[in-house]
Deep mutational scan, measured.
Amino acid sequence: GAPPLPPYSAGGREVTMKKGDILTLLNSTNKDWWKVEVNDRQGFVPAAYVKKLDSGTGKELVLALYDYQEK
C-alpha cells in the first residue's frame, strides 16, 4: 500500500494524480510535499508518492507510484 501521508505543510493547493502518471516537477525544496504540474494544473503531491525520472530533456519529471486524491 501507499506510505503514510506526511502532515500537510506545503501551503498551496494539492493536485490529484493516478498511479503511472508522468508529472513535471516544479519544486522539490519541501522534503514532504513536491510541487508538480499535471494537465496544466499546478499543485502539491506527497514526495513519497512519486519517483524522479531521468528525462534527458532538462525538464524534471516524476512518476506517480500511487493514486493521490487532493483533499
Rank of each mutant, 00 (worst) to 15 (best):
N27V: 06
V38I: 15
T24Q: 09
E14D: 13
D21S: 06
E70Y: 08
V50H: 00
D32C: 08
A2Q: 11
L26V: 12
N39K: 13
K52G: 05
N39M: 12
Y49A: 06
Y8V: 13
R41H: 12
W33E: 00
L5R: 12
E37V: 09
G12H: 08
A2I: 12
S55R: 08
V62R: 00
G1A: 13
F44P: 00
G1S: 11
A64D: 00
K35C: 12
N30W: 04
D21I: 04
V15Y: 04
Y68A: 01
P4M: 08
D67Q: 03
T24S: 09
D32L: 09
M17I: 15
W33R: 01
G12T: 06
G12P: 06
L65E: 04
P4G: 07
L65N: 03
A47R: 07
A10G: 08
L23H: 02
V36P: 00
E70R: 08
V36G: 00
K59F: 10
I22N: 02
Q42G: 07
D67I: 02
P4C: 08
A10I: 12
D40T: 08
V38N: 13
P46H: 01
L61T: 10
I22K: 05
K51A: 09
L23A: 08
P6M: 01
L65G: 02
E60N: 15
N39C: 10
L65H: 03
Y8G: 10
K19Y: 04
A2E: 09
G1V: 09
A2R: 07
N30G: 10
L26D: 01
G11K: 10
G58F: 08
D40C: 12
M17F: 09
Q69F: 15
K19S: 06
E70G: 15
Q42E: 13
N27K: 06
Y49R: 05
L25H: 01
Y8C: 13
G56S: 14
L26K: 04
T16F: 10
G43D: 02
G12K: 07
K51Y: 07
T16L: 05
A10L: 12
E14I: 10
G20H: 04
K52R: 12
P4K: 08
S28V: 05
P46K: 02
P46Q: 01
G56Q: 12
L5Y: 07
E60Y: 08
K35E: 13
Y68G: 00
P4R: 08
S55L: 12
K59V: 14
G43S: 03
R13W: 08
A10D: 06
D54E: 14
W34V: 04
D40N: 15
A10F: 10
K59L: 11
G12N: 06
L25R: 01
S9H: 15
G20Q: 02
A10N: 08
K51M: 12
K71C: 12
V36L: 03
R41D: 11
S55Q: 11
W34F: 07
Y49L: 07
Q69Y: 15
Y68D: 00
F44W: 14
V62S: 02
L61K: 09
T29H: 11
D54K: 10
L63S: 04
G58V: 10
L65C: 05
A10C: 12
K52V: 13
Y8Q: 11
L5N: 06
K51N: 06
L61R: 09
V62F: 05
V38E: 04
K18N: 07
R13P: 15
